[in-house]
Simulated assay, not measured.
Amino acid sequence: MEKKPIISIKDVTKRFKDGEGEFTALSKINLEYTAGEFAGFVGPSGSGKTTLLNIIGSLDKPTEGSAMVMGKSISALSHKESALLRNKHIGFIFQVYNLLPVYTVYENVEFALLLQDYSESDRKKMVMEALDWVGLTDLKDKRPSKLSGGEGQRVAIARAMVKRPEILIADEPTANLDAANAHTILKMMKKLNQELNTTFLFSTHDEKVMKYLDRIVNLKDGKVVKDELVTAELGVL
């Protein structure tokens, strides 16, 4: 049986005002993703990678075309509905970890659950499980200022994954990491992708990231120039 797409992008165009004119960031993009893909958008700066991720993540809306995510039309969602979609179904990881400095590691991860209907005991179980996924249970009482860069990004992954989202959006997640930490983070993400069947979508120009991807979409000047399935060089971890 053919898998039903959880993300369907049809003829999506995105324009931004540029002085008295307009700038076309995306032009007639057509893409579909099913559950469990480990995929990335690759291209030079200004190619439209982040704009496309923002639309899929319901942080922005297309100017034209249709973007369906988890059965919802991004264009039709209100601000409240967009927030609910993100809160329930989409996790985000950025190159800047955006951890709350006054909170502990545990509290930073738990923060993602506070707007949902979980009991305190359920939250504790979910947070500790997420910290176990990323190997940080022993640092749960530390504050972000006491963490290394790699540890900070692992907390960000735990925070994004604690609610077990169907979609995880990672925008240049290894940009601020050295090679050893980058590979540790990527192996961790690949393992979560395989165990939880979460769809991972990356925006990257990092060769290290590309070696882990199963599908690469090349963007240039807001258009898809290549969409290819690849064999991750590092295989199943």
Rank of each mutant, 00 (worst) to 15 (best):
V109Q: 01
T13D: 07
A76T: 08
K3Y: 10
I169E: 07
D214W: 06
E207R: 10
L147A: 07
T50D: 09
F202L: 08
L201H: 07
L237E: 13
K88Q: 15
D206S: 04
S148G: 03
W133C: 01
F94L: 14
V224G: 12
F200S: 06
M128W: 12
L177H: 03
I74A: 04
A112F: 00
Y212E: 05
K142R: 15
Q194M: 15
K191N: 11
E151I: 02
E37I: 11
R159E: 00
M70I: 12
G91N: 00
Q153D: 00
K72V: 00
R215S: 04
T174N: 06
R123V: 09
I74D: 02
D117I: 03
I167T: 04
I185C: 02
T104L: 08
A180T: 13
V225K: 10
K28W: 01
K142V: 02
S82L: 02
K163S: 05
L186H: 09
V102D: 11
F38W: 08
L26D: 05
S66M: 12
L177A: 03
E172A: 09
K163Y: 02
F202M: 08
E228L: 13
L52G: 12
L100W: 09
R154Q: 00
M189E: 02
K208Q: 14
T51W: 07
K146E: 15
L114F: 06
K49M: 07
S66K: 14
T231G: 03
Q153R: 03
L77Q: 05
G149T: 08
K125E: 13
T198D: 02
P44M: 08
G91D: 00
S82A: 15
N98Q: 14
K14Y: 09
R143P: 03
S58K: 01
G65W: 02
F94K: 10
V225R: 10
D214Y: 06
G149N: 04
K10E: 15
Y103R: 14
G149S: 04
P165H: 09
N54P: 08
D117E: 15
F38T: 08
L192T: 01
K226P: 00
F38Q: 05
S119T: 15
I29Y: 05
K124Y: 06
G235F: 10
G19D: 11
I9P: 03
M70D: 11
A67Q: 01
G36A: 13
G43L: 09
A112N: 01
F41I: 08
V155M: 04
W133M: 13
D122S: 08
F16Q: 08
G135W: 05
S78W: 00
L77R: 07
G21I: 07
V102C: 03
V162P: 00
N181T: 05
E2C: 03
R15C: 11
N197R: 14
K220S: 14
N30G: 10
M126P: 00
P5A: 10
K80R: 15
S78A: 08
L192I: 15
D11N: 15
K220A: 14
E172D: 13
F202N: 06
L100S: 10
M70K: 13
S45F: 07
D171C: 11
D141R: 06
S203F: 00
T231N: 14
F92N: 01
F16D: 06
L84Y: 09
D214R: 06
S66F: 02
L114Q: 13
